[in-house]
Design a protein around this nucleic acid. Structure first.
Length: 320
RNA sequence: CGCGGGGUAGAGCAGCAGUAGCUCGUCUGGCUCAUAACCAGGAGGUCGUGUGGUGCAAAUCCCACCCCCGCAA
């Protein structure tokens, strides 16, 4: 089967590897142009390009994918696999391959359509999730479903662990689905529009912790946003307002008798950072987040114990 | 040359011109039924690199380079 692969970031690159190792080496890989990346703004090829080079697959990096339409027509692919490309693929191209265009989505569609399904799954406290492979149509994450595989979400699942699991699962399901397609066994079924939910694109600002939420909600956010956009809070130090990323935390309930302002930092036992969350001022409602790992702006990530050694004045301040 | 923070004892930080100090850890002794608690004392640093520059004098100012990190992309 003549396959064309379209994708850009790490997630796509991993799927591409799985595809190649499964015996479906694409005839052409389309990916975004090399872009300046990182602190030094070095022009860097996207992950998918590196994989394609490694396996000596021809690469195309059009500014506009529409410019490539005639070339794709010439190739006459049987199937196009699209994984997180970065550009919207026009209908005229979607209609070229005989078997259509496949897309891998890391959720159980129609639940969590859109760009941030993994984060929303954890944030929402879902018990299970999975991957879906669907035939693309003009609407985003809307086409008929070809196959789906579920997994159970564990208690301390993070954006990272879930993403790894789903990438792996997705790569395997893709191979199965393609061979089914090849044998004409695939039976697409439309999505149930009534059950559709949507995830929004997340920005850095969305990672800001709102201490008025319950510790439980905040802890979920920290896990959900592990890879992107991460969770942070602001601390007024002696000199200036600093950003602190929080990468790991647990919750603590106490009968509590003392009322603290929301965002107040305190220690319950040695070397522990607790932050008052939720309703705050109400006595008898000890709702605390215990910070375990954090990273101060300009510093490396460390445990809260290490952090406290050098910041004796941290306890007793109020995080914003 | 995108913007910015930083490299000081094993760890985390302060000092920002007169050859280093804090918290934790570590070692020794004491207290205690006991202790991760408490008390006393000790060890541990050529202050990122430079047969660099300016000073009477540099961890502290200037220059070059290496490394780490935040923002922006």
């Amino acid at each position: 089967m003549k396959i064309l692969f379209i994708g850009t970031p790490d997630f796509s690159a991993d799927i591409l590897k799985g595809l190649i190792n499964g015996g479906f080496k694409p005839v052409l890989v389309i990916t975004e142009t090399d872009k300046p990346v990182g602190r030094k703004q070095v022009i860097t090829p996207p992950p998918v390009k590196l994989v394609a080079q490694e396996y000596q697959i021809p690469i195309a990096q059009p500014e506009e994918i529409l410019n490539l339409e005639s070339k794709i027509l010439d190739i006459k692919p049987d199937l196009i696999v699209v994984v997180a490309y970065g550009q919207v693929i026009p209908k005229s191209i979607l209609e070229i391959p005989r078997h259509g265009c496949l897309n891998i989505h890391p959720s159980l569609l129609p639940r969590w359509r859109g760009p941030s399904p993994i984060q929303y799954t954890i944030l929402n406290g879902d018990k299970k999730t999975g991957v879906t492979i669907m035939l693309m149509d003009e609407k985003i994450d809307h086409g008929p479903i070809l196959s789906q595989r579920e997994i159970i979400i564990s208690e301390n699942e993070t954006g990272k662990t879930l993403s790894e699991k789903l990438t792996d699962l997705g790569a395997r399901l893709l191979l199965e689905t393609i061979s089914q397609l090849g044998r004409g066994l695939a039976k697409p079924r439309p999505q149930n529009e009534e059950k559709a939910t949507y995830s929004k694109i997340l920005t850095r600002q969305d990672g800001k912790i709102n201490w008025k939420r319950t510790a439980e909600e905040i802890e979920k956010q920290i896990r959900a946003f592990e890879l992107w956009p991460e969770s942070f809070t602001l601390w007024q130090s002696r000199r200036k307002l600093l950003k602190i990323k929080i990468s790991k935390a647990t919750t603590l309930k106490s009968k509590g008798g003392i009322a603290y302002p929301v965002g107040k930092t305190l220690t319950v036992s040695q070397n522990q950072i607790c932050v008052q969350c939720g309703k705050g001022f109400l006595p008898g409602e000890g709702d605390f987040l215990v910070i375990e790992r954090l990273q101060l702006e300009g510093k490396k990530e460390m445990t809260s114990e290490e952090f406290l050694r050098g910041h004796l004045n941290f306890i007793g301040t109020i995080l914003k």
